[in-house]
Design a protein around this nucleic acid. Structure first.
Lengths: 236, 236
DNA sequence: CGAGCTTGTTACGAGATTGTTACAGCTTGG
DNA sequence: CCAAGCTGTAACAATCTCGTAACAAGCTCG
């Protein structure tokens, strides 16, 4: 049932010993477009962080066994994992003071009770802060084309249109790299996924289908003969 | 339901030191149905934002005195204003990189030159995104469907109908988010609860039962292949 | 208890989606 | 202008998705 696309989505590792909290966070993060790795305890979290190279780690401070604090410390110790941002969940506000006193390696923290929405916002903002190169915008717009990735909605000149899963993905990839040439290989990789064994001509077919649906905005997808395709902003 | 004046229109605060830009934006936003507050500099913008409780703030990045960036930071610092969405106007695309590095609190940004129309679209989409049904109405109505949540009553074209608990919940969730796509996962989460371990196909079944009972209004529930379902207002 | 209702699961078929292929038209370089 | 190579287009088959119906388990209420 998943519209899976491992390649260019960010992986978030979350660790909490309460299954409910874990599921809730996972669901909301997935809904916000992240891939999620779940860990029920500190040991598992540490292992996953080392093997799966997540973009970010969300840790519950209080866990049986390895606490979130210890996991964070371990991560900071090794070069391979030392730069992974850490968002710490803490039960009480006054715990934070102690943590800060301990020179916690967390990039941000949230005190319980928190709303899942808040966590998602924090995760996004920490990612934005720590990875200036890749801004993840939910809202894309190029010329008359507007895309809301969260709602999976596309509007052409204000009018809502439906796209299939593949078309949608292809469109958003082109839009977020507007102005830059995308080779068929890159598109195959980022739209269809790493291990796909798909003919490059397939890209052409989907580009055609995209253009057909885009109607007046079809011109925004340029063909660069011999290389691939490029979305262009309309010249004013 | 009300044709009334100021009360239920959204207030947008715009700040720019160029009078021309300010007027142009104000005009277009008013035309789009918003109330507009104008500020010529950062200080005034900050004051208005604190006293007038706007739904959203549009800030020019470069202003004499307090810059848009500083205003945004100030807003984020205080709980009363920290949740107001910020749309930032920037002169050049490469300014954006610097902004991101500076931990911008903006929800979206637009680079100059921009069309007023584009700003209006952005404002609308940011508002759509950041305001997930703040009003909980007892009375819902979409097309010929009318729901009274207190009496637990549903009327289709005036005729009363019985719905089961699940059907009722599903219907109201769809109605309150009329026009917006709901994935099966979201529906499972919001109708069945997040700890439920239920197959996504179950959603399909209940959608079908809903449509069956809705009769003439069945068309109001759209299927968005590959993603989920959406309730639409019949006017479109 | 038991009939009837509610609800989640499952099977299946129609139809949509999608990758492939063939071919025609176009661009490019000589 | 021609030949070679790309790309646009259309058609096709494999696959996937969703609507439909049937079924079984659970629940309610007499």
């Amino acid at each position: 049932m998943s519209l899976s696309s491992k390649s260019n989505r960010k992986r978030i590792l979350i660790a909490d010993d309460e299954p409910d909290v874990l599921s809730l966070l996972a669901l909301n993060l997935q809904r916000a477009g992240f891939d999620v790795l779940k860990a029920e305890d500190g040991e598992k979290a540490l292992n996953l962080a080392r093997t799966e190279n997540p973009s970010m780690v969300v840790l519950d401070l209080m866990m049986p066994g390895l606490s979130g604090l210890e996991v964070a410390k371990q991560l900071k110790l090794q070069p391979a994992t030392s730069r992974i941002p850490v968002l710490m969940l803490t039960a009480k506000a006054d715990e934070v003071d102690r943590i800060v006193g301990l020179e916690l390696g967390a990039d941000d923290y949230v005190t319980k009770p928190f709303s899942p929405r808040e966590i998602v916002l924090r995760v996004q903002s920490v990612l934005r802060r720590t990875e200036p190169a890749t801004v993840v915008a939910d809202q894309l717009s190029v010329g008359v084309i507007q895309v809301d990735r969260i709602r999976h909605e596309v509007r052409i000149a204000g009018e809502s249109l439906d796209f299939t899963a593949t078309e949608f993905k292809l469109l958003t990839v082109l839009m977020e790299r507007c102005g830059r040439l995308q080779s068929r290989e890159v598109l195959l990789n980022d739209v269809w996924g790493y291990e796909s064994v798909i003919d490059t001509r397939t890209v052409d077919t989907h580009i055609r289908r995209l253009r057909e649906k885009l109607g007046v905005a079809a011109d925004l997808i340029e063909t660069v003969r011999g290389f691939g395709y490029r979305m262009v902003a309309p010249s004013e």
